[in-house]
Design a protein around this nucleic acid. Structure first.
Lengths: 342, 342
DNA sequence: GCGCTTTCAGTAAGCGCTTTCAGGATGCTA
DNA sequence: TAGCATCCTGAAAGCGCTTACTGAAAGCGC
């Protein structure tokens, strides 16, 4: 038998000798005589029938694939959050579509647009927004009609204009707490490995850290703030740059754990010991940092929970009033990568 | 103005005062008088129109979202491969939909079925298959009609029955090479931290390792092979179990790097030093293991390349003849986690 | 046994889009 | 200026499915 390109419901109906409507009903578990239903199901199985999701969606049946857009699934930070999202989605019998923008605002818009086109019931935006008015307007322009059309949106970690449910990790206060913890250890001269200024997360963490230091009368020398991509290699490069500049900092605060990992590698490659020669702290508490030697001091964020909460928000009605889950995490976990200065 | 639930092409056509056909053509860049086209585009923008992807797909337009199914995006191994897939997909202007099965065969089938329903142009299956005849048949039953319907499928790392293009990491020979490398270091008593027997990858790696040892007259004591989940905690647990058993092994081979990381943590927690007290080796060469202390000896797989190749296979015609990219990677990289036994 | 409600299968009307086909301008040749 | 090819535009036919709506048959009370 020559296989048909696609087996349709009509084929099934014909094979079972029933009408289209009956076939549809039988397959969707609606009231149909058991005898007919069995015939339809048998026919469907024999023909390896799979309903065309597009036709189904078009005909009005809701569909169950939510979209999750993050910067980079390859980054453990996003992977952990996505893990949380998928957990809750799985519990609710939803399929998850994960997309990476690789921090390209254009691509983010493209994905939102696509998800909108797919009539996904919900879109989750994970990760820092950009400090870019043009992008903000464009995203707004995509999201507004989507929301008006009944779409649900929840975001993790972007607090700007968007009028949607959000889960906000404690970036600013977390960084401030880290400043205090490091000051308590006796450090007075700090360096910061920063990420792209365009990310709101960078502004928050750097600001929180700097302001708290200022309260203690410690200022951050601009030469001690090095910017690099939010990646392991970005951290490596930034740390190398810092060493090249001959910074006198006794403690380096990397704005993400991933960068901190790169920084530690750079230090090791330069024959410096953490924390004996220099202390290193990170932010996020991604799972791996506990297993590093030395384990990394960092600001703990309940990553998996952030994802779970975001999915839950998107799943429940908000009655048009935006909800915000503030102050998620932000506690400093002091491990062995930071030394007490005597 | 009360926002419509969904702006349709018809709304745009009416606003621009043209026919449906013209609106469609204008928006799709087909030949239309510039004047009309501008009017249509202006109207579309004003109304924040986004074409309904389902209607479009149903009407026959091809769509550009490929599906990637892996065991767990949260695992750096899959994340790295997925990264490669996305790179190539991005270059080809494709959107990628990532799904995690969490090693549940049922869920894998569900995702394939869904992707089939979505009429995704290609499906990529990443990661070991299961040694389970029932599952194999069910998957076959999903894939066959999909392929017959013109769908493209490529797999990474599952070499069983499936008649589809595949990229096969050098599991068996890689493990054998590792056995030789470890023997060369002088080790004679080994332990293996294994994954679920149901995974073909486990059979290959364990078999390759064991057989190569046998060639050198070294046998693997069954008590020195501990099974656990392919996760960090799985490795931790398996290593703990091994210690509890009082194994005399001088070298532990974990079937994946992720497990090896857990194993190192367990050893550290037990006050044992790697590699002084015991050597540890892994498999995969996920990016992080270079940054561990000590950096991990492992079998290097070109993870990103595996993903890229798979995507490329799925993108190019195979004329019904299945292609296999064999012997990808498999070289042993000796780092500091394994010591020479004198 | 008659008229009523109830149950269930079938008919057909879309969902929003692409695309074929046909027809009306337009421009060109002779 | 008639005749023909060339372009565009619009009308309409689906793509495969869901779901009113319709109507027939069956079950009920009197």
């Amino acid at each position: 038998m020559q296989p048909r390109a696609h087996v349709t419901l009509e084929d099934v109906a014909r094979a079972a000798d029933v009408s289209l409507a009956t076939a549809s009903r039988a397959l969707n578990g609606m009231r149909v005589t058991p005898q007919l239903r069995d015939r339809v199901i048998a026919a469907a199985e024999k023909l390896a029938y799979t309903p065309n999701a597009h036709a189904r969606a078009l005909a009005g049946a809701s569909h169950r694939t939510v979209g999750v857009i993050c910067h980079d699934v390859t980054d453990p930070y996003f992977a952990a959050i996505a893990g949380g999202v998928m957990r809750v989605a799985g519990d609710n019998d939803l399929l998850v579509m994960l997309a990476s923008t690789f921090r390209d605002p254009e691509r983010e818009i493209a994905y939102v647009s696509m998800l909108r086109a797919e009539r996904a019931p919900a879109i989750l935006l994970i990760g820092s927004g950009f400090e870019d008015a043009r992008w903000e307007r464009a995203l707004e322009a995509e999201l507004k009609p989507y929301l008006d059309g009944g779409g649900r949106v929840a975001v993790v970690s972007r607090h700007r204009s968007l009028k949607v449910d959000s889960v906000l990790p404690e970036n600013r206060a977390g960084a401030a707490a880290m400043a205090r913890a490091l000051l308590d250890l006796g450090h007075r001269r700090f360096a910061v490995l920063s990420g792209p200024r365009a990310l709101t997360t960078v502004a928050d963490r750097l600001g929180g850290f700097r302001d708290e230091l200022a309260k203690a009368g410690v200022t951050l020398d601009p030469a001690d703030v090095v910017e690099g991509p939010f990646t392991r290699d970005g951290g490596y490069g930034a740390m190398s740059e810092l060493l090249a500049r001959g910074s006198a900092a006794t403690c380096v605060f990397a704005l993400t754990d991933v960068m901190a990992i790169g920084a530690c590698a750079a230090l090791r490659d330069n024959g410096l010991s953490v924390p004996n020669d220099i202390s290193v702290a990170g932010f996020d508490d991604i799972p791996i940092v506990r297993d590093l030697t030395p384990p990394l001091t960092t600001v703990a964020l309940p990553l998996q929970r952030l994802g779970e909460k975001a999915m839950e928000l998107a799943l429940t009605e908000n009655n048009g009033r935006r909800r915000r889950l503030l102050r998620m995490g932000g506690e400093v976990v002091v491990r062995a990568s930071t030394a007490k200065l005597v």
